[in-house]
Design a binder for these strands. Structure first.
Lengths: 328, 328
DNA sequence: TTGAAAGCGCTAACAT
DNA sequence: ATGTTAGCGCTTTCAA
């Protein structure tokens, strides 16, 4: 491994000058040239570990998400990454798998590795940010709000739930069920609240309780919930899916039974990027995942840069894409 | 930030002893207890950067993939992560976005950060592993073979192409097209070769050239290719998709035209995890992505542990799930 | 088993 | 503008 001392010797300067060349402080043009040449000759790369130990910082940010296999989060990750790498930061993607312990481990690593900041979609309400915050590192919450006073970027979940439901009501459906994520995740609870509010406003449907299901945010849970709903004495004629994977699970079950939309109405809070359905068969409230990542990364970078204004929360709205079909 | 010196002072031992406690070398039971207590009191976490600078290593491995938004690669990432975290390693996920320069940057970072090893699905044939290999770090190639003499885990791509095609032939289709990824990616070329071989063996189809398309490994490219094929004077009655996203794109176009499988035969090399199709409508040659990640991670860990046997390549086979329907 | 001390590669005072 | 030097927090000889 070549060090700045090797480069310094070859270029006939001091190690400090080599360091300066690589950090952009004032060095005479001729020495800059000599150092660059020597560095190139020796195939020198600065040792980030040493740099990081010395400066107590590193150009790395951690992105902690609950499910790396969910396209919603990977799209968000792309947004984060694009902004970060533009600014010279690398992104370490950590998959908490919705487990608080794994999440805590990654947060510890972020501290121990001197990472500059953290963007996190928390695994649950109980997530503790105490130790990371006590180090003074900036944290931005994405997708899910936290009980801490930190920057956040969230979705207007209640509005999204309302929009999805209203789209079905307008299309003529009259018994609209809801399948959402775990009730203790705020995003899931808010979307469910939106569904309830829309139904209440429409005054068309009374037995709301019977048509509400909380599953996991995964395909399997949604499948089971959909089966349950269809087995009801009075099954629904439409369903609102609380996120993209729930939408997939619900539609899978429906399709297997020959009930392809719009035979039964489907509205999804989220996008179906890999759907093979006709694009107009279901209503999607598309969530700006990438934009969310971009916004969060920008906020984090500002904080890393020393910005100390009070914590802000940015609320992003979904974009309704109505199914063109109506109830048949 | 608390250091081993703080802990040492509080426990009444030397810093070296504290270090030993955290690294499992012989220390008397009473001192171990004292150190642990002091560490807990002070909420001490060893500084990985310092450790890494001193030992010239770190318990981090890099996983470089060309498309983080492709479920195939995220499933693979899960496999890698599960094995790695079990062994006390963390995984840094790097998205090269199929760009050789981005890939090179991440490889540089892996070196500069003293990461223990790299698992990489290369962006292209031209990927250079020279500098990472010259540092002596182990590299395992996944999904795509390289021109270097390193460990690898790949799919039996030609066999997968043959299996997909044969499934369609057996179902009675007679004009089977192929849409694959870029011809210069070996996986794409091999799958195409499998398709050609299966058709040649069946002797049912002659104008192979007209029915072959190379797109990107993305949804959009596949859509365009599918449109082209349908616009042919003599359009195909079936299509083999070279990967999961190509399958999605092709099926989307077909569905939009009311040509849902099995009206037209579809076989995909890969899985459709978020499909909303009836599960028996298309043939899938399911690829063991997670297993691939697991295998690669195990191999890398062995190398990190000092294993110096000659480079091995593990070939994994896809698992055919035939569409239950036949040509209609 | 334990401690003292050197040094991993770099940056940032401080001095020139 | 440039060089000298003292650490950043840790591990690891070497001695005791």
């Amino acid at each position: 491994m070549t060090t700045i001392y090797d480069v310094a010797e070859r270029a006939g300067v001091s190690p400090a000058t080599v360091s300066r060349v690589f950090n952009g402080t004032s060095v005479s043009a001729e020495k800059v040239a000599a150092v660059r040449k020597a560095a190139a000759d020796l195939n020198f790369t600065p040792n980030r570990t040493a740099r990081s130990l010395r400066t107590q910082s590193s150009e790395v940010i951690a992105l902690v998400i609950p499910d790396i296999e969910n396209p919603y989060f990977t799209e968000m990750a792309r947004g984060v990454e694009d902004v970060a790498s533009e600014a010279g930061y690398s992104v370490v993607l950590c998959n908490s798998d919705s487990q608080t312990e794994k999440e805590a481990t990654y947060l510890q690593i972020a501290i121990a590795e001197h990472m500059s900041g953290v963007i996190i979609a928390t695994a649950s309400e109980t997530t503790s940010l105490d130790s990371i915050l006590s180090t003074g590192r900036p944290v931005v919450a994405v997708d899910r709000a936290t009980r801490y006073d930190v920057d956040g970027v969230v979705i207007a979940n209640r509005a999204a739930g309302i929009a999805a439901t209203e789209s079905l009501i307008e299309a003529g459906y009259r018994r609209i069920a809801y399948i959402g994520g775990p009730e203790d995740i705020d995003t899931a609870a808010d979307r469910a609240a939106g569904w309830r509010a829309a139904l209440a406003a429409a005054e068309t449907q009374t037995d709301i309780g019977a048509l509400q299901r909380f599953a996991t945010f995964r395909v399997d849970g949604a499948r089971a919930a959909m089966e349950e709903l269809l087995a009801l004495p009075e099954p629904p004629d439409a369903v609102v899916a609380g996120n993209n994977l729930i939408g997939v699970g619900a539609i899978q079950v429906l399709t297997e039974r020959g009930l392809t939309p719009p035979q039964i109405g489907v509205a999804v809070v989220g996008s179906l990027p890999f759907t093979t359905l006709s694009p107009t068969a279901v209503t999607m409230v598309r969530l700006p995942a990438r934009h969310m990542g971009v916004t969060a990364a920008r906020m984090l970078l500002e904080r890393i840069g020393g910005d100390a204004q009070p914590a802000r929360t940015v609320v992003l709205r979904g974009d309704v894409q109505h199914a063109s079909a109506v109830r048949v």
